[in-house]
Design a protein around this nucleic acid. Structure first.
Lengths: 229, 229
DNA sequence: GTCTATACACAGATAGAC
DNA sequence: GTCTATCTGTGTATAGAC
């Protein structure tokens, strides 16, 4: 699937995501009309990501958010019980979409090496389509309460383990040379993260997401064996 | 130079660094006795990095800092004019030490490939010896005022350019296969950064800084040519 | 040089009108 | 559902004693 197609798929799934988030936080959301709730939650989340990614979530005041989202302070509190819950909602929605999209993209693919390529490419496509979410989740993870922080770390390790397992499969199938898969997956993840953490740099250099994917995949595939340095 | 030796070298240079920082901010620092000033500035910086790296600089209150550093609120203000200047001092000291140590480590080395290896290894050693500083600088860069932010980006690009130039030299000398050096340097930098950003992960896996350096260098050296994917 | 006590601003959160 | 007005806690910063 090309990136433009991928992006459309993600956008089609968007309303569902917000409905899901609303259900999960039904206790705090006082707005009953679903259409209104989805529309405003989208505006709130978009505004929160915009402001928080500029100055940090802690430094973003609810007055900032209120202005950016075009809703009053009072209205905001109809969608979450406080700043902390807003943070949890954003993190959860991000984890949920990442897990789902990665799983869906791999399900139809059989060949081990092709599965590895798909995982890398899908991760890059997703972080490109939802860059503010990925950036936010990465930067704010350490400000979460302990329980949420644990979930965030587990989610990160799960993605890394997925990569490591796919590499092991590829090695077993003879498509890749033997190596320390956990370390290789760790290095790969670092490269994937840099794509959304330093987007200004790559964009300024006119590097497309496909260029970047090719470069990361070439690094993985060219890694033949451990040399003595 | 082995990592333990490197660490001692860095520690010996520490007092000088603080003296330098004091001179640069002579306007704001009201404490006149240099020995006292250096000692307390060290405690303040260490406490600031500890607290800020846990909860973020914006969320760190000066009361937190006062407790962690063992100085009263009033005393803190003898060392900086406000939170913003403290931030600038920390960032400047970090940039200064990074630039200096990298330069010094490369000066005696002639062979192109060896220079590249030295740059990678020194960067990892330095970020290991000063992990809190590197983590802080990375995470708080976007909260700086515009002018400081620019310096931070330039510093990052300078390091990356250094890597790219060393790769170009190595290619010219025939020690490395031709490639897009800017992109390769960018991917390498991502791997270097992951070392200090995700230290908990690597430490938990008992990966030493030398293990990691070997893995990064192997990735660079094994990258032979761009394949069609 | 360092402390305690305090001024002042602004944050998150809510009450109640519309 | 959304607004404006307001409460209350807490943050930065300073004044002045020691």
């Amino acid at each position: 699937m090309s990136y433009p197609e991928f992006k459309k798929t993600v956008e089609r799934a968007r309303a569902d995501l917000y409905r899901e988030t609303l259900e999960r936080h039904a206790g705090a959301v006082r707005v009953k009309k679903e259409a209104t709730a989805v529309r405003n939650l989208e505006r709130i989340f978009a505004a929160a990501l915009k402001v928080a990614n500029e100055k940090g979530f802690a430094a973003m005041t609810l007055r900032d958010l209120s202005t950016a989202a075009g809703l009053s302070m009072g209205a905001l509190y109809a969608y979450f019980s406080g700043k902390e819950e807003l943070l949890a909602m954003l993190q959860e929605q991000h984890r949920s979409v990442t897990r789902r999209i990665l799983e869906e993209s791999l399900r139809p693919v059989q060949d081990p090496m092709e599965r590895l390529r798909t995982a890398v490419r899908t991760h890059l496509y997703l972080s490109e389509a939802m860059q503010p979410w990925f950036f936010f989740a990465y930067m704010e993870a350490r400000h979460l309460p302990a329980a949420e922080q644990k979930k965030s770390m587990e989610s990160e390790l799960a993605t890394e383990k997925l990569l490591a397992d796919l590499m092991t499969e590829a090695i077993t199938a003879g498509a890749l040379a033997p190596r320390d898969c956990r370390l290789a997956a760790s290095l790969t993840k670092a490269m994937l993260q840099d794509w959304y953490l330093k987007r200004w740099k790559h964009a300024g250099r006119r590097i497309t997401v496909d260029d970047y994917a090719d470069a990361v995949l070439a690094t993985i595939e060219n890694y033949r064996e451990r040399r003595e340095i």
